[in-house]
Simulated scan of single mutants.
Amino acid sequence: MAGAQTSEVDAVLKQFLNDFPTVIGFVVINSDGIPTKWHESMPYERAVTYAALMSDFVAHCKKCLGKLLTGPAESELANVRIRTKEGTEVICVTQTEYILVVIQNCTGKPWVTEEEGGGTATGEGS
C-alpha cells in the first residue's frame, strides 16, 4: 500500500512540475520538519535547510494568525508567499500533516543556479 501511495505522490509532483514550468524547486516537509520529497536538482542539504527554516516560519505564522484573528476559520493558515530581490518567490502551502514549499522563478528569464562547487548550471525552470 505504501508503494502505491508513493508512486501516486510522485505522479502528482511530476504533473505539478509540468503544469508550472517556472518552478525551480520544491520540498515536501512532514509534521516533524523532516523533508520527505524534494526536487531532483536540489541537494539534500539545501532541502534540509528549507525544511528547518520554513517549518519554523510556518509555525510562527500560524501562531501569529491565532493571536491576531478571532474566529478559528479566520485564523487558519492556507499559504504564505515570500518574494525575494533575486526574482524568486517561496510559497508554503500547509495541509494537516505536510507543508509543500515551492521555489518559483518570477524573472521571466531562464533560471541560472549556482552549484555547491562554485560553478553555474543553467536551469530552464523544471
Rank of each mutant, 00 (worst) to 15 (best):
H60P: 04
H60A: 12
S7H: 13
L69P: 01
G125I: 02
I91Y: 03
E116T: 15
D32L: 13
E76F: 06
T96P: 03
W111I: 03
E76D: 09
V12L: 11
A121D: 09
A73H: 13
I82R: 02
V112F: 07
A59T: 10
I82M: 07
F20V: 13
A121Y: 09
C106W: 04
G118C: 08
V112E: 09
V48Y: 05
A2T: 14
S126G: 12
Q104C: 06
A52Q: 06
V90Y: 12
V48P: 01
P72G: 00
T94W: 02
E114M: 15
E116W: 11
V80N: 04
E115Y: 09
I34D: 02
L17G: 02
P110W: 02
N30V: 01
A73S: 14
N18L: 12
A4L: 12
E124M: 13
G117V: 10
E115T: 15
G108M: 04
E8G: 06
N79T: 10
P110C: 01
V102F: 03
G108Q: 01
M42E: 03
A59L: 08
G66F: 00
Q5A: 10
G108V: 02
P35F: 04
K85W: 07
T22Y: 09
D10P: 05
I82F: 05
D56Y: 09
Q95T: 15
T84C: 00
P21N: 05
C106P: 04
V28R: 02
R46Y: 11
E124C: 09
G108L: 03
E124F: 13
P72W: 00
L68F: 05
G25R: 04
V27N: 03
G33V: 00
Y44F: 12
I103Y: 06
A78N: 12
T88L: 13
G108N: 02
T94F: 03
R83F: 07
A52Y: 05
E8P: 01
E86K: 07
G108D: 03
F26E: 02
A47P: 04
Y50V: 12
G119T: 15
N18M: 10
Y98E: 12
A2I: 14
A51N: 00
G87R: 00
P43H: 07
I24C: 01
I82V: 10
V90N: 07
G33T: 00
N30D: 14
E45S: 15
N30H: 02
Y50S: 06
R81L: 11
T6I: 14
N105L: 03
I29A: 00
Y44L: 13
P21S: 06
N18I: 09
C92R: 04
E97S: 15
G66I: 00
G125S: 01
T120K: 12
G87D: 02
K14R: 15
G87F: 02
H39D: 15
H39E: 10
E86F: 05
W111H: 14
T49I: 09
E86S: 11
